[in-house]
């Protein structure tokens, strides 16, 4: 092709990126080689346009993040007091507030919860509020309840420190519940997995599931004060959900 041929102009015309296409059109009509280059560029761009962009799967994304942090953990400098730590303290405070609300409700309800194992309204709100906190850990938690809003999270952090340390191995819990709530927690988690809202927490490290190809979600939680993982695997529209003890990586739900 001769140098006088304006290949940039032809390429821009092929991209339909010219405000005034008449010079390019004239060039193509008067120059067979330019016309050939135009058709070639159009063909390439059409092939590109119809070829779906490759994307990471959720599992690949999770493993990528996990691999990065496994690799850099020994060399990473100490984290600043912002982000994760502060986020955890806020959540610990909220969890402590929630525990107080549940405890009061239990007293007032005179054991009704044991007969009707349903999640409290506050617990349900915590379940839905927590993913937002996960998404942006520097933002204030969504309001949980009047009791939680009134709770001093700074003081709560120290009073809930035991639970915080217990949950550390499983990452910060997104939901705190009792064993009596298991069926409803599992059901709500199933809904979130099917809706594509549940995530694979990068710190999840129970190898049996982490290395499986059908892992859909792994979110930290706390059941009766013990760190657990809410796991989903299989098909997204009908996932198998399990609750796994975070310390031992053994299934605690469904039972036997």
């Amino acid at each position: 092709m001769h140098e006088r041929h304006d290949l940039d102009l032809i390429a821009a015309f092929a991209r339909e990126a010219l405000a005034d296409a008449s010079p390019a059109r004239a060039l193509i009509e008067s120059c067979p080689e330019c016309a050939e280059y135009y058709r070639a560029t159009r063909l390439v761009l059409e092939a590109v346009r119809t070829d779906p962009a490759p994307r990471l799967t959720d599992l690949e994304r999770y493993r990528l993040h996990r691999a990065i942090w496994e690799e850099v953990a020994p060399e990473a400098p100490a984290a600043s007091p912002t982000s994760r730590g502060r986020w955890w303290y806020r959540l610990a405070g909220a969890a402590a507030a929630l525990a107080a609300v549940v405890a009061v409700g239990g007293v007032l309800g005179n054991g009704r919860a044991a007969e009707e194992p349903t999640m409290t309204t506050a617990a349900r709100e915590l379940f839905t509020a927590a993913p937002d906190a996960m998404a942006d850990r520097d933002e204030t938690l969504a309001p949980l309840s009047a009791g939680a809003e009134a709770f001093d999270t700074t003081e709560a952090a120290s009073s809930a420190a035991g639970a915080g340390e217990a949950a550390d191995g499983a990452g910060a819990p997104t939901v705190v519940f009792s064993a009596a709530d298991l069926p409803e927690v599992a059901s709500a988690f199933t809904d979130r997995v099917s809706a594509g809202e549940a995530v694979i927490e990068p710190t999840f490290d129970c190898a049996e599931w982490a290395d499986a190809d059908d892992l859909l979600a792994a979110e930290p939680a706390e059941m009766d004060g013990e760190p657990v993982w809410l796991l989903a695997h299989g098909e997204r529209d009908a996932p198998s959900v399990e609750v796994v003890d975070a310390a031992e990586c053994v299934v605690v739900y469904p039972h036997g």
């Binding site: 942090w69 990473a76 100490a78 984290a79 600043s80 912002t82 982000s83 994760r84 850990r137 520097d138």
Partner: peptide, 10 residues
């Protein structure tokens, strides 16, 4: 932030 060890930032 990541250079200062902020994992969430990275």
């Amino acid at each position: 932030r990541a250079a200062r060890g902020d994992r969430a930032a990275f």
